[in-house]
């Protein structure tokens, strides 16, 4: 079981990394919009224009 003395601190290190990454992501504004990304997945890419492009 003494491997836990290594593995748990390692897990904590990864945890710290995850928290740091998330803080960075929040700080850079990636989580400011929590509504549209959820809808984006169900939207098709644009349809072919019916008229000629300008």
């Amino acid at each position: 079981m003494s491997i836990l003395y290594v593995l748990i601190p390692l897990a904590l290190l990864l945890l710290g990394l995850a928290v740091w990454a998330f803080f960075w992501a929040v700080g850079s504004g990636q989580f400011d919009d929590l509504d549209t990304p959820a809808m984006r997945i169900v939207m098709d890419d644009d349809k072919k224009p019916e008229a000629d492009e300008e």
Binding site: D33, D35, T36, M39, R40, D46
Partner: peptide, 30 residues
Amino acid sequence: SACSWLIETTMSKQPGIESAEINPITHRLR
């Protein structure tokens, strides 16, 4: 949300635009 989708999709197709992100809460387009 449909407005924000419309704006983002239209703006990201404009010549030169690298990215267009809109925040529907604050109505700010970046």
